[in-house]
Design a protein around this nucleic acid. Structure first.
Length: 421
RNA sequence: GGAGGAGUAUCGAAGUGGUCAUAACGAGCUCGACUCGAAAUCGAGUUGUCCGAGAGGACACGUGGGUUCGAAUCCCACCUCCUCCGCCA
């Protein structure tokens, strides 16, 4: 949620920034509601002040034996007027919220306008693997190796589901172990949150109400299956005031991610590139505003380091405004090379939400110097999503005979150097 | 799932229809005094949001409604926690 004071005071600047995300809005209606709200609040508060005064005097007058019947009648009228005005204010506030809830975060100044076509590669890591034989895609390789069972995944659930088995399960688990070990080394706290979250969690994250259809909703209680651990981690400190000294808070969590991915699967996204359930480790930071850019760079560097540790070829891209998600003001994607597709696919998205999510979730900190509460900045980054890293390893490390070299850092968990048919 | 109990500031807790909710009382914390220093003791301070240029005002006792001139207090619904029973990895 944007700060309405900012819209009131810097209307054109905000409108312009939102245009970079291809979001056109005229704030006239919103600001009109805002003005109405404030004037009505002023009115109702004056009435309440009177009611409070008179209500305090009534028992005194009664004690003196004065007849207060007329006074009671008058107060009754005032109470009715107050109730009416409050109803109007509630309605105006609901209309304001309806508008605000659908306005995305503004992109940072250094983020370029436009959609994904305007994304800018920042740097490339490792060498693009070259093969002197006809390569296979990860689906063919995994099936031949017997490490991913796509057919039975679909049999158990439906399309867009797969099943890890044997060395495949070990390799998947090894990735998670590798990520976890590195994050702990860097001083991040390990969280295993609930996977079933309540509506408020989705609202704070920016998922609801606009993107509510993207998640699996449970029929009772407005609960849903988390689409990413970010949705859980952003809510750890919802409606809390943290002390400045305890910042930054650095967390990471492992959870499966459940996503509807409604619409038709694109043919090129076969296998495990896009599924309804995938494993991901998510990094998260709560920081003071002046430190959030630094934190974003740290998260990006961590994601890159994990990828370098695996020895994969990948690149870092800075997203254009309209490719940043709803709640985010700046995003870097780590994208791994998928040889069979001939493109780079996102394995990590590192974003700064600035105060957008903090405002939605009432997350603040007390600044020691001033004693005032201010909104936190929140940042998240995958570290990493296995479902894209796995196929990249299989494809980039494949050999002519269909065997696959296991990255060095994973061998202690997989128990072998090479997966063979 | 059933029965009962509870939710008040950082914590414990008082308040059960109106002159004390910036909340009694106790503890913690911060600053100061005393001290060589510390403990003890004494003194002061210690919630947030909204409206307002300011003066000031309003709101908040788990959440949302209701009754009333007036609600922490009475009524209803919901949420969370605790105890017991049932079930269960």
């Amino acid at each position: 949620m944007l700060d309405i004071n900012r819209i009131r005071n810097n209307r054109e600047e905000v409108e312009k920034a939102l245009l970079k995300k291809n979001f056109k809005i005229d704030f006239t209606e919103l600001l009109d509601f805002d003005a109405q709200r404030r004037s009505k609040i002023f009115e109702v508060e004056q009435m309440k002040a009177k009611r409070n005064t008179v209500s305090g005097e009534i028992p005194k007058l009664k004690k003196q034996g004065t007849d207060v019947t007329d006074l009671l009648n008058e107060m009754k009228k005032i109470s009715l007027s107050i109730a009416e005005l409050e109803k109007e204010i509630t309605s105006i506030e609901a209309q304001i919220k309806d508008i605000m809830d659908y306005i995305p975060n503004t992109p940072a100044d250094d983020v370029v306008a436009g959609d994904a076509t305007q994304n800018q590669p920042v740097r490339y890591h490792g060498r693009k693997p070259e093969f002197d034989f006809t390569i296979k895609d990860h689906v063919a390789l995994c099936e031949a190796l017997g490490i991913i069972d796509y057919k039975r995944g679909a049999k158990l659930s439906g399309s867009g589901h797969w099943m890890y088995r044997g060395d495949g399960a070990l390799l998947e688990w090894a990735l998670l172990n590798y990520f976890i070990t590195e994050h702990i080394k860097d001083g991040y706290e390990f969280i295993l949150p609930p996977h079933i979250l309540n509506y408020e969690c989705g609202y704070t994250a920016g998922q609801f109400p606009k993107f509510g259809d993207d998640v699996f909703k449970l029929t009772e209680n407005d609960q849903f299956l988390l689409p990413t651990a970010e949705t859980a981690l952003i809510n750890l400190h919802r409606n809390e005031v943290l002390r400045e000294e305890e910042l930054p808070k650095k967390y990471f969590a492992y959870t499966p991610c459940y996503r509807k991915e409604a619409g038709s699967y694109r043919a090129e996204e076969r296998g495990m590139i896009r599924g309804h359930q995938f494993n991901k480790v998510e990094m998260f930071q709560y920081t003071v505003p002046e430190k959030s850019e630094e934190a974003l760079m740290e998260l990006v560097a961590k994601a890159e380091a994990l990828m370098n540790g695996l020895g994969l070829h990948f690149r870092l891209s800075k997203l254009a405004a309209a490719d940043c998600s709803f709640a985010m003001g700046k995003t870097y994607d780590v994208e791994v090379w998928i040889p069979s597709m001939g493109i780079y696919k996102e394995v990590s998205s590192a974003s700064n939400a600035y105060d957008f999510q903090a405002i939605r979730g009432g997350m603040r900190f007390k600044r020691t110097a001033t004693g005032k509460n201010e909104y936190l900045h929140t940042l998240n980054a995958s570290g990493l999503a296995t479902s894209r890293v796995f196929p990249a390893i299989i494809e980039q490390n494949q050999h002519k005979d269909g065997s696959v070299t296991v990255p060095e850092v994973l061998r202690k968990w997989v128990g072998k150097d090479k997966l063979t048919v």
